[in-house]
Simulated assay, not measured.
Amino acid sequence: MNAPSKPNAQLETGRATRNRLSSVATAIHLLKAFSESESEIGVSALAKKLKVAKSTVHRLAQTLVAEGLLEQNPQNERYRLGVGLFALGTLVRRRMDLPNEARPYLFDLRKLTGETIILGIPSDGAVMHIYDLESPQALAMKSDLGARKPAFCSAVGRAIYAFAPQAVVDEMLAGPLTRRTPKSVTDPARLRAIFAEVRERGFAMEDEENEPGIRGIAAPVRDSSGAVIGAVGIAGPLQRLSLEALEGFSQPLLSAVATISSRLGYTAAYQHGLGN
């Protein structure tokens, strides 16, 4: 038997890709079919809503059940949204709640310190700035909103990942750690020691390790479960911020993150060195 020609193989590959995309779209429409007025729907009704075969609905529904995104009522065999969606929604809500709850305290910190205030979140072993308030002074750290930056050499990143699960830290430190300035620490053993110091003190510091001429301090923000979901940082030029002056910001910073954490549902007493 002759081997299929290359154009035929490409055609089959294209068709398979379209089929997969079609299945993904149908699965999304299936989940969106549920509403407050229709919290449970059977296969026939779903097939009618989606205008697809019942066999297709059954196959997709079983896959979604296996992933926890759907559940099947054993009494009537109808489907309903699963708790897996609640978990995903909670992740989204945390990220939406964090900047909203933090905003007034970020403004207070800028007014108190006169320096740039940063709100960052973890992002695949890095850190992303989701809120930046630039210093009103002429010489200031510039905003980098939305940018992903290495976490190992920034105060905001260290304040977050010092409290991350060991596996997450191991993965981050196993990757290439590119020196961003002559002062950047890239030795994994030294970084682990720095993370331990952050857990002990409750805040992280950087001294021209992420950007030349910039110093910073940051402390972690926790959610209702006690997990660190972000960090608030204060950064400014070394011409204005000695290390002593920077560390002097630690108490108002810790007070701010404690208040933000409590507004996110964290009820335990906020203490220096609180671990995972």
Rank of each mutant, 00 (worst) to 15 (best):
L112W: 09
K111Q: 15
G42I: 08
Y266W: 08
R103A: 12
A27C: 03
L30P: 00
S35W: 06
L60E: 02
S250A: 14
G84M: 04
P182S: 04
L264M: 13
M128R: 15
I194L: 12
K48C: 11
L173H: 08
L81V: 01
A151M: 09
V257Q: 00
R110Q: 11
G233F: 02
E134R: 06
P104I: 09
T178N: 10
A189C: 09
E211W: 02
T56D: 05
R20W: 10
G248D: 05
P122R: 13
L46R: 04
N73Q: 05
S37K: 15
R93F: 08
R110C: 10
R222Q: 12
G213R: 05
S242T: 15
P136D: 04
P104N: 09
A268K: 15
P136W: 04
D108V: 08
M205C: 15
R215T: 13
K51H: 11
L253R: 04
I130H: 04
S154T: 15
L177D: 02
A66F: 02
V65E: 03
T186V: 14
I130S: 06
D144G: 11
A227G: 08
L69Y: 01
N2F: 09
A245C: 02
G82Q: 00
I160D: 02
L60V: 00
A155W: 00
D223L: 07
N100V: 14
L70G: 02
R148T: 09
M1T: 14
G114I: 05
S5V: 09
L243M: 09
Q239I: 14
I260W: 01
S135V: 05
G84F: 00
E211Q: 11
G114L: 04
